[in-house]
Design a protein around this nucleic acid. Structure first.
Length: 94
DNA sequence: CACATGACCTAAC
DNA sequence: TGTTAGGCCATGT
């Protein structure tokens, strides 16, 4: 288990990261769904920013966040969206 | 405090 | 199906 509360960032970001960690392996959630999950249904923009501001893409499965259209969106980690697509493919979410 | 940024969303053409 | 335009919110400068 990982304590997001000991990481750097605002409470909002911590909440977002917590939801990301709550996403089961092989599954994907839209940014808007995450926004609703943390109690900020209209902050989907900030949610995407929180993911981008994610300090540890390794510890946090930020690659499980996709767009409502089904597009991958983006990825700040190494390899960019290419790595994101590969990770999802490895997990069977693609 | 005001402006600019971004891994977005929805509707309209 | 692809593109354009407007709205939306937390963060950083």
């Amino acid at each position: 288990m990982i304590n997001t509360h000991q990481m750097d960032g605002t409470d909002f970001q911590k909440s977002v990261w917590e939801q990301l960690l709550a996403i089961p392996r092989g599954k994907t959630r839209t940014y808007k769904q995450i926004a609703e999950a943390i109690g900020h249904p209209s902050s989907y923009r900030a949610v995407a920013n929180a993911c981008r501001a994610n300090p540890t893409p390794i510890t946090i499965p930020c690659h499980r966040a996709v767009r409502s259209d089904g597009s991958l969106g983006g990825y700040s980690g190494e390899g960019g969206v290419a790595t994101k697509a590969r990770l999802l493919s490895e997990e069977g979410a693609l």
